[in-house]
Structures are given as C-alpha cells and as structure tokens.
C-alpha cells in the first residue's frame, strides 16, 4: 500500500461534531482515487488533512514510508512532497506561466529547472504559453497550468480539489479525459474530490463515497455507480446532490 490513512478524525474549533469521523483508506501506487460526496460531507477537509493544511484531531497518514501525521508527529505541508491543484487553481497572478511552474523547483539547478518546465508544459500542451500571465489564459488553460505546476516537482501524491467546478460542461468532458491520460502517463498516485459522479466515473480507478464525514462505500466505478444510466436507485449517494443523474 502506498497511501495508508487510518482512523482519521477532524473537528473545527467551534464545531459541535466531528467533520471527519474514523476515515480509513488505503491506496496503491499509481492509483487514481475519487472522493465523491455532497457539499459539506467533508471531502475537501480530507484533502486538506492529507496535504497538511489542517491538523487532524486523531489518526495517522502514511505516504510511502513516511509518516505524515500521527498523534505525536506532524509534517508541515512544504515538507510532505505532496502536490495539489486547487479549486480556483491559485495561480500566482504576478508571475508568468513559466515562473508559476518554476516556483516549486527552487532547489533544482537552472538547467534542470528549464528542462522540467519544458517537459511539463509539453505534457499539458501549453509550450507556447510560457510567457503569458494567468489572466491572459482561458479557464481550461489555467487549469492545465495548475496541473503542470503541481506535477513539476514530481510529487509522491497529487491532490485535486473539485478540479472541474470552474469549467463549462463541454470543456469539462474533454479535460477530464485528458487529465486521466496525463496522470496515468506520469504514474503519480492521485486523489481528487468531486460532487459529480460523471467525473468520478470518467477519472477514477476507485471511488470513495463520503457521507457526513464517514466512508459510506468504497469500490470501482462499476461497483458503486453501475454502467447503465439507471443507477440512481442503487446508489448510496443521495441523487439530489449528484449533478447529472
């Protein structure tokens, strides 16, 4: 197992109940996992806990051989070697595409940096855009830059927070196929959270259905969602929260 999450729990300081309760998950190397749930189910919180942006109240997170977090240790986000693509991409507006991608490569040599920027830009098909600023790019292009920036430092694990929520429907379909191709070609282990079961079905090797901070079901897209269009009745997720049932 490459990622091992055990008994994870989290509570916001002034909240009455736990946002995350006894969350357990194991992920194989190179696997793409989708965490599917309605808004408020705690799916983004899990991502933030894995990233180290929030500290769990209980539980362990192991990535590879490294303990990211236990009841006695906590590795800061910058030391985890985990990449993240934010919902609104969070591209630094005062930097060009190239500088955004170079940002995570501060310890690399100049030559290696240059090569790596070229590689990732080629991977996302944006070689001609390296001198552009984020505001000069379309939504889809911004998302690909965010992906390239996250991939550049060769993270052990890549996290996506609602990666398609800012894209229109046509673009969403095209980009998620491309995204799967890119992720699989790099072999990086990935977790993405979404409220859209079509995204999960198209991208993920396995789906984790989350409800009120607890795992409701884990399985392949086939097992969870079925293949035909009439799967709403069999689904553990409330149909109203799924965008295209």
């Amino acid at each position: 197992m490459f990622v091992h999450i055990r008994n994870l729990a989290f509570k916001y300081p002034n909240a009455k109940d736990n946002t995350i309760n006894d969350f357990n998950l194991t992920i194989d190397q190179g696997e793409i996992i989708s965490i599917l749930g309605e808004s408020g189910s705690g799916k983004s919180t899990i991502l933030r806990l894995i990233a180290g942006l929030d500290m769990p109240t209980n539980g362990n997170i192991m990535v590879g051989d490294h303990c990211m977090c236990s009841n006695s240790t906590f590795t800061q986000p910058e030391k985890r070697g985990v990449g993240m693509v934010f919902q609104d991409y969070a591209l630094f507006p005062h930097m060009t595409v190239e500088d955004n991608i170079k940002f995570g490569l501060q310890k690399w040599s100049r030559k290696d940096k240059k090569n790596r920027v070229g590689e990732v830009l080629e991977l996302v098909n944006l070689e001609d855009y390296r001198k552009r600023y984020p505001f000069e790019l379309s939504g889809g292009q911004q998302q690909r830059v965010a992906l390239a920036r996250a991939l550049a430092p060769k993270p052990k694990l890549l996290l996506f927070d609602e990666p398609f929520s800012n894209l229109d429907a046509d673009l969403q379909i095209r980009i998620r196929e491309e995204l799967r191709r890119i992720i699989k070609s790099t072999g990086v282990t990935s977790i993405f959270v979404t409220h859209d079961q079509d995204d999960s079905q198209a991208l993920a090797d396995r789906i984790v259905v989350l409800r009120e901070g607890e795992v409701a079901q884990i399985g392949t897209a086939q097992e969870i969602l079925g293949t035909d269009c009439n799967f709403a009745d069999r689904m553990p997720v409330k149909p109203r929260v799924l965008s295209r049932v």
């Binding site: 990233a51 942006l53 910058e78 985990v82 990449g83 993240m84 969070a90 940002f103 920036r149």
Partner: peptide
C-alpha cells in the same frame, strides 16, 4: 489563503 497554501504545497515555508 489559497495563494499561501498553494505556495506551501510547492515547498515554501
């Protein structure tokens, strides 16, 4: 806080 978090995820303190 997104820009700060993005920066930290890219290895900056």
């Amino acid at each position: 806080t997104n820009f700060t978090e993005a920066s930290r995820m890219l290895g900056m303190s």
